[in-house]
Design a protein around this nucleic acid. Structure first.
Lengths: 202, 202
DNA sequence: GCCAATAGATTGAACGATCATTCTATATCG
DNA sequence: CGATATAGAATGATCGTTCAATCTATTGGC
């Protein structure tokens, strides 16, 4: 075989790890952390239970990797925003997309599971909080830039407060999507834009 | 023994049921639904595992009762609001309390666990959605009354949209409390009040 | 070019623990 | 006495994890 480590950065081991994580994600999504057993995961990943432990130390390591992967994905999503010329318009343009994604019950399940686990598992909490600090920082930069462009004060305190409120608004949609699946996405997006313009840029 | 069902509505059976629910709540709070086993619950409640099944058909019935009890408590909280003379002031006065409660990580654990479970367990979903419909209705009435008192349009569509956004804002705090335990409660409460006055009453 | 040696990939049975649940036996009380 | 309350052992399933055995593929000697 041609050496993977030179021609292809995704070695066989990496592929296997990814298979396990994908299977674990499906299981957690469908049944939650508690019922996502190793036996189900390895069956879905098409390998034996013993082999799973060749790539992950234990079940918690799988969960931690899953959490980290999901949070990395979120960070990627927000990263593109600050690259735009008009940051505010980029934010507002993305609201309908962000609202739709957060309200999607398929995503909600995993995110809620992660949050619940973080509220009592210190290892998961650390991962979640690192990602959140990074995500909030990005949001603060975006808000500060939008305010500067409009000649508004962009002191740290103001910007930080607005970022927390904005984060809370979007985070809340994850719960709303579960509590009321028929939530009107268009209306929420419109009202969110209204708040963004009316409060965040005033 | 004096007949409980006449003199005291809390019969011995009700007391036992409540013991079980209290123990179950503690277990779920500390370890989540998955690790809240019958053996732990019955040990904490001070009774044998067999006896638990004398009062609940199975584990899911305990969880369902726990969910229902938690949601009833939330409905009680919001019910008092509409009784006030000045509904808007009552709403705004209650913001700091509501913010503090939602950001409390002790409450968050149970609420997130319930939401996560609802996103894939139809029985739990039904209970959660019934309670949410009730809670949202209450919120709509409050907002409509506040707007009427200020001569603002109180058409159903507008009010419904605002209620959803307000619910999302507070729901989001549950997740924020987990993701960033150091969230500034005073600042969030102040900004929320600002949004309530600036957007909901305009 | 072939064969033995070796190292990594993979298996699946087995382990002890714990799970939700059931059942029978005993205790308590009206 | 009859009925309800309660206990706790037993059941079979499933859990996370381990481990010795087997397969596969690459390497090095000839």
């Amino acid at each position: 075989m041609i050496a993977d480590d030179e021609r292809n950065p995704a070695s066989k081991a990496d592929v296997r790890r990814e298979q396990i994580l994908a299977a674990a994600q499906t299981c957690v999504l469908e049944q939650g952390f508690h019922r996502a057993s190793i036996s189900k995961i390895c069956k879905l990943a098409g390998m034996s239970p013993g082999h799973v432990y060749h790539y992950f130390e234990n079940k918690e390591a799988i969960i931690a990797a899953l959490v980290r992967r999901d949070l990395d994905h979120v960070l990627d999503f927000t990263a593109g925003m600050r690259a735009s010329a008009d940051v505010l318009e980029a934010m507002i343009d993305r609201i309908p997309l962000g609202v739709a994604e957060k309200l999607d019950p398929r995503d909600a399940s995993l995110k809620l599971e992660i949050a619940a686990e973080a509220s009592r598992n210190p290892n998961i909490a650390r991962i979640v909080r690192e990602a959140d600090a990074c995500s909030l920082k990005s949001l603060r930069q975006t808000i500060a830039e939008a305010r500067r462009a409009r000649g508004l004060p962009d002191d740290d305190k103001t910007v930080a407060e607005l970022a927390v409120v904005a984060a809370a608004m979007f985070d809340g949609l994850v719960i709303r999507g579960v509590r009321d699946p028929d939530t009107d996405r268009e209306a929420v997006a419109r009202r969110f834009a209204e708040i963004l313009r009316g409060v965040f840029l005033a």
